[in-house]
Simulated assay, not measured.
Amino acid sequence: MNRLTVVVLSMAALMHGAHAAEKVLKITNRRDAFPVWEVYISPTGQSEWGKDQLGGKTIGAGQSHSWTIPWDGCYVDVMAKTFTGLTAETRSLNVCGGAEWVIYDVTPKSQVQPSGNATSNFSGKMVWRITDKCANTESIRFRFFTEDGKWRWPGGTEYWYTKKFGESYDQSISCPTGRTICYGAWQPSNGLSWGAGAEGTDMCPSCCYVCDGKVHEMTLTCEK
């Protein structure tokens, strides 16, 4: 698949240009906090997605990115992906004259969506083993988040914390099986943070795991 060209002009300006320039796809990320890390675009009906069209860039929350479409035809298939692998797709999108795809929430097809009584969907379990290897005398606070930021453990402003340097703390949480869960840890006095941070908004490709019943270990040191 041909690599797409990044467009820096506005959609309105492009629509007054030549016919080729009118075939513009704009993707807008309306998620609360998390960026889109990869975008794949192909002619509708093509069996393979080809290369990531962001080329190492990201589309942050509230941001947009645009491409011109170089091939013949008006219809494209598009897939967006987060750093944890959650995806959203749209098919047969007509880009002739310009089109915008707005992403509100990126979810895998098999993901369990909490609704109604949340506890009824939290039938899975996972254990996080947090080891404090930061010898600066301050305890490390930590909590856990769903990748989309809608749920956290413990709730509200509460958190768990380490009590002694060198010790490990096992924290079991009930979670939707197959859902991606991320850890966030921080020391307010020393200004240190790990993983997704205190509010789950930091990018952390290595701080998230699927709710799979297993033990996931994190060793936190003072060195960043």
Score class of each variant (00 low, 15 high):
Trp151Gly: 00
Gly62Glu: 07
Ala80Arg: 02
Val215Cys: 00
Glu167Tyr: 09
Glu199Cys: 06
Thr87Ala: 11
Ala185Trp: 08
Met11Trp: 01
Ala80Val: 14
Ile140Lys: 07
Leu86Met: 15
Val78Leu: 11
Thr90Leu: 09
Met203Arg: 15
Val36Lys: 02
Leu4Trp: 04
Pro35Tyr: 01
Ser66Gln: 13
Gly73Met: 10
Gly85Glu: 01
Thr219Leu: 11
Ala20Ser: 06
Arg143Pro: 07
Gly155Trp: 12
Gly17Asn: 07
Cys182Ile: 00
Ser139Pro: 04
Met79Ser: 02
Trp49Gln: 06
Gly200Met: 01
Glu147Pro: 00
Ala198Ser: 10
Thr58Leu: 08
Gly156Glu: 11
Ala33Leu: 12
Phe144Arg: 10
Tyr75His: 14
Phe122Leu: 13
Tyr209Leu: 11
Ala13Glu: 12
Gly56Phe: 11
Gly149Leu: 07
Glu48Leu: 05
Glu100Met: 02
Thr177Ser: 14
Thr58Glu: 10
Ile140Gln: 06
Glu38Gly: 05
Val106Ser: 05
Leu25Tyr: 08
Thr87Pro: 04
Asn136Phe: 02
Trp160Pro: 00
Lys23Gln: 13
Asp202Trp: 02
Asp170Asn: 10
Leu220Ile: 03
Gly184Asp: 05
Met1Lys: 08
Gln53His: 06
Val95Tyr: 05
Pro188Thr: 07
Pro176Thr: 08
Glu38Pro: 01
